[in-house]
Amino acid sequence: MADHYQEFQGLGVEVIAISTDSIYAHKIFAQSSPSLSKVTYPILSDHNQQIAQTYQVLNKDTGTANRAVIIISPEGLIKCILQYPNSVGRSIPELIRVIQALQFTQGNNKGAPANWQPNNEGLTIQWETVGKI
């Protein structure tokens, strides 16, 4: 993620990493390897699990957060929720695609259909296109 932060910043996206670890664990973690020491975005401590619970990504058996991504719009609305099983990592290209698609569809009456990419025109959402997607 640290390697891709600039791409998100380029899209005007702020990032917060969150786990239920203490801030002290975060400090040791962040300072433990050269790649992590590059991280400039905040690593939030959700030690009482409140945030993970509120955002419905808490694994109650382990008291830890599931691997999850929540995308919040400038208006403060939750626009995307992704949750992964323990054994599967995230796809950064997909996150970037979702952000670009959200930004593309915001403020126009268009939709970004399956496999939309930034060079696609998108679909105008109107009666005539119903059933043709």
């Binding site: 702020e14 786990s19 955002y55 694994n59 999850a68 991504v69």
Partner: peptide, 11 residues
């Protein structure tokens, strides 16, 4: 701002 919350299991 656009904001992305990146939940993860543990350090």
């Amino acid at each position: 701002k656009w904001l992305m919350l990146f939940f993860y299991g543990g350090d």
